[in-house]
């Protein structure tokens, strides 16, 4: 029986506020170990990794790509691909949020609107967003604004992907508000508009932010899938294009770039949440 560990952990838990150097070292070991395993697999041909790409090549090429070199021969820079994918996610998620938040608030606070809207939307919800892609391609012709073509199908799929997490979380948040808050506000002289603005909306905000965070995550999943299937420019496109050209470092760079942007956008949503909710304790 190793008896020291619980008490050790308690002490560490207390000191957790200021990361001691050993913790930083351990985390670095984790990352270096990850790259080392990749390198060993490549060097010794484990799991066909010898046909893949070495981490060294990838890092060098990634640096080049960040310096503005085109990812593929005669192609676009990583920044252009990132901007396309990012713009699709941004527009899709914002459009979804603009529709899903009001709908969610209405459905979450009114039984009648819940009965009228929820069943229809609930019937559509389980359909995976990507499977809308063929329908979207059939329905939306490619829209051209001057020299920039706006492929609406990818946008639509992102919209669908992020709509439902935002919608369901908003409903959940609006439903679980303690009725005493509304009653207290009314007794203090608030009208129903005031209650909505000063009670319902702020009380639902944490759930809305959770929904947005999930929605952005699904936005990135769907945009990559859509770009893999319908082409670019975009990071999903570059991932499959790199594979077609047998440039595996481009594949990995694309994956890492999507991961980094996904990480950054979820941090952005979190920051938005903290800014909108200064009373939050987390």
């Amino acid at each position: 029986m190793s008896t020291g560990s619980i008490s050790d952990r308690l002490v560490e838990g207390f000191a957790g506020g200021l990361p001691s150097p050993t913790r930083g070292v351990r985390k670095l070991v984790s990352l270096v170990g990850f790259v080392a395993v990749w390198w060993l697999f490549y060097e010794f041909g484990v799991l066909n990794f010898e046909h893949f790409v070495s981490p060294v090549t990838t890092i060098v090429e990634f640096a080049g790509a960040l310096a503005g070199q085109p990812l593929t021969e005669g192609g676009d820079t990583i920044y252009l691909h990132a901007v396309y994918s990012g713009a699709r996610v941004a527009v899709g998620v914002v459009a979804a949020a603009l529709l899903a938040i009001p709908l969610g608030l209405v459905v979450g606070t009114s039984d009648r609107w819940e009965n009228l809207l929820y069943p229809a939307l609930e019937a559509l919800r389980p359909i995976p967003p990507i499977s809308w892609l063929p329908i979207a391609i059939i329905v939306f012709p490619a829209l051209a604004l001057g020299s920039i073509s706006v492929p609406l199908p990818a946008l639509f799929v992102v919209f669908i992907g992020s709509f439902f997490p935002i919608f369901t979380n908003t409903i959940e948040g609006a439903r679980t508000i303690e009725t005493e808050y509304g009653q207290a506000a009314r007794s203090l002289g608030a009208g129903s508009g005031d209650v909505f603005r000063h009670v319902v909306l702020p009380a639902t905000l944490p759930s809305i932010i959770t929904g947005l965070s999930l929605g952005v995550g699904l936005g990135w999943i769907t945009v990559v899938a859509a770009e893999l299937l319908t082409g670019g420019p975009g990071l999903g496109y570059i991932i499959i294009q790199g594979s077609r050209l047998l440039q595996n470092q481009v594949v990995v760079i694309g994956m890492l770039a999507v991961g980094a942007l996904g990480y950054a956008t979820s941090a952005l949503v979190e920051a938005l949440g903290n800014w909108l909710m200064p009373w939050s304790t987390e």
Binding site: L28, G33, I221
Partner: peptide
């Protein structure tokens, strides 16, 4: 500390983006 940072590198990559690799 030893495992989570490595997993955190992989986590934000959408699963479908793994297909070509």
């Amino acid at each position: 500390d030893l495992t989570f940072p490595a997993l955190e590198v992989l986590r934000p990559i959408p699963p479908i983006a793994w297909y070509p690799a």
